[in-house]
Simulated assay, not measured.
Amino acid sequence: MAAQHGGGDTRTHGHPAPDEHHGTRNKVARSILDHGPSTAAELAQRLELTQAAVRRHLDALVSEGVVEPREKRVYGSRGRGRPARAFALTDYGRSAFDQAYDQLAVDAMRWIAQAAGGGEKGRAAVAAFARARVAAQAERYRAELERAAPGERARVLAEALSRDGYAATARGAPASSGEQLCQHHCPVAHAAEQFPQLCEAETEVFSRLLGTHVQRLATIAHGDGVCTTFIPGAASGAAPGTPKTSKTTAATASASTAGRNPA
């Protein structure tokens, strides 16, 4: 249902423009994301709109599958009248916000590449940004991996990644003495599809954290169902952050194929 005019919207010749409808509707959905299931009255107060305007935007969001109505939970005795309906984001609605942030990442990296002069300089600038990003992420994991026994480091890394939304697991690799680190979700898959430097930097950081070379076998960004990284069984007598010198070249070579299927 297309939203009609309502109090609190900016108007053009008496009716809000389509972009203004869209912007206000996004604010309604964003408020629900930030504050949890909300009634029309709560949203109206929060966004300084009339309840009639909010209801029209909610009707549109429900028809698009972005939000769904629920009976608002009441604690204590319930007064007379029909209980207020609260509106919550659906899984589809949440994914729409993830895509919006992903697009922001793409736009930012495209700007970095252009600002550096494009071409090889632009790719190098994006790679430097990607390394800085994952290096900061890795610092949060380092202490946990340093405390873990060598044979437990892949599992500990998977648990740390899962807390950051990667739904990661570690398991024995088929027909080998190594392990596979599997990431079943990638919050930046759309960005990594266009900028494989993100996958390459992540692979390099895994190598440093685990103290051995690793090989990226598959990525969601390339169209695979899971991001899969092979960790050799000899992993790791080295401490996290200090891969053996003889394996540094191998780590770099493996990282260079990140984001692509192996030949």
Rank of each mutant, 00 (worst) to 15 (best):
S38T: 13
A116Q: 08
V28N: 09
R78C: 00
E152R: 12
D98W: 08
P174K: 05
R208G: 02
I32Y: 01
A158K: 05
T242Q: 13
R30N: 15
R123C: 08
A132D: 13
V28Y: 14
L49V: 01
H13S: 14
Q197W: 09
Q114D: 14
S256Q: 15
G122F: 09
R56N: 13
G237I: 00
L145G: 04
V134Q: 07
S176L: 04
L145Q: 04
L89N: 07
A86D: 11
Y75S: 01
I32M: 00
A255G: 04
L58F: 10
S177N: 10
A149F: 07
G211A: 05
N26S: 10
G65P: 10
A136C: 00
P174W: 08
F129N: 11
K72M: 05
V106H: 02
R56F: 07
T10Y: 12
G65Q: 15
G93I: 14
A170L: 12
T212W: 04
G241S: 07
M1N: 09
A44T: 03
A113C: 09
S95F: 06
A143R: 12
E48P: 00
R85D: 13
A148V: 07
G8K: 08
E20D: 11
R131W: 07
G93D: 11
A125V: 13
H13C: 04
G76M: 02
Y101V: 15
I231G: 01
H222D: 12
A221R: 11
T50P: 01
R216A: 13
V28E: 11
H213N: 09
I32P: 00
V188M: 04
Q197E: 15
A128T: 14
L161V: 02
V226A: 00
Q45C: 07
A88Y: 00
A84W: 08
A173E: 03
R110W: 09
P16I: 09
D19P: 01
P69N: 03
R30W: 15
A154Y: 04
F230E: 00
G118Y: 06
P69M: 02
H185L: 00
R147A: 15
T169I: 11
H185E: 02
A253N: 11
P37M: 03
H21W: 15
P69G: 02
R85N: 13
R11W: 06
D34Y: 09
G122R: 03
E159Y: 06
L104G: 10
P150F: 06
A263T: 08
L89W: 06
L209M: 04
H13Y: 08
G119Q: 07
I32A: 00
A148L: 08
P196Q: 06
D91K: 11
A17W: 13
E204N: 02
R123K: 14
C199G: 11
A124S: 11
Q215P: 00
V156H: 02
R11A: 09
R30Q: 15
Q215R: 15
S162D: 02
S38H: 09
P18H: 14
I231C: 01
L33Y: 07
R30A: 15
C182L: 08
A173Q: 03
G225Y: 09
A60H: 14
G76A: 03
G241N: 05
S246I: 10
H21E: 10
A158L: 07
Y92S: 10
D224G: 05
A135Q: 12
A250L: 13
R70S: 10
R153G: 05
I32L: 01
A105D: 11
G223Q: 04
G118A: 04
V28L: 12
E202N: 06
